[in-house]
Amino acid sequence: MSPSLTNRLLGYPDDARLLIINADDFGMCHAVNAAVMRALQEGIVRSTTLMTPCPWARHAMRFLAEHPEIPFGVHLTVIADWEDYRWGPIAPRGMVPTLINPQGDFYNFDQMQPFLAQADLTQLEMEFRAQIETVLSAGLRPTHLDWHCLRLQGWDNVYEVMLRLAREYGLALRAVVPSHITRVQSLGLPANDSGFLDSYLVDPTTKAAAYADLLRHLPAGLSEWAVHPGLDTPELLTIEPQGNHVRQTDFDFLISPQAREIVQAEGIILLDYRALRDVWAAVEVERVH
């Protein structure tokens, strides 16, 4: 295995095991917000990303404003997952017609591929930009960009829009798809290069053991886990009836003493995106000058 390029870019030894645990979907609903806040303050979560178009985004942003020490990113959102709990664009609907369904909301997840196939990239950029500006205009300073419910495999053009925005705003960008990781690294920028885990793919019935196992055997290099903490409140159970307790089981593990102990015992370095952001921003500056 070749040494991690990212470790070198971030100034860590080749054998350092770096892990970003990012709580996705901050702002989606109250049950998610409550869980994310606790996981950030009591658990092993070190980073979160904000869904600005969602109903509970203001609540999340107020928390971030009160806690400037907590690093967070912008969870670029153009998909609305749930049947009866909807959201839509921040940009005026008339300016982003290819992003919305006839009801004026974002498309559902199961329509993701046809949506991307017909989405106008200019409109997509406009909406992404609106979401970033919403955060900036609230006086918040994000570290990075990632995205909500998009399978970007095969959609390099969409990733390129995000990459352009990340570089323009001096933010880091999540990389998941192998060729996107290569693309980011070819620019001399750090990216997760040792595995990306989406917690929705982990079986909730055996999750704690699986997470513990993954932590114990975390490879050298930078890994990222996109976790989805939430509380099984009536609100969440109603929004996400088929959720299969993904969010509650994520939350349970992330704040468990076991998780903390394993991280400590294994010498895993928990990172957030600030270290990456600094390199992304610096490389940009060098190019300008």
Binding site: R151, G195, D198
Partner: peptide, 22 residues
């Protein structure tokens, strides 16, 4: 996508393989 599938599986259960391969 085979790449997406193996990447997801690998994230859940890393298995040693060939360094020149996805």
């Amino acid at each position: 996508s085979p790449v997406q599938y193996v990447s997801e599986q690998q994230a859940q259960r890393p298995l040693p393989g060939v360094s020149q391969a996805i």
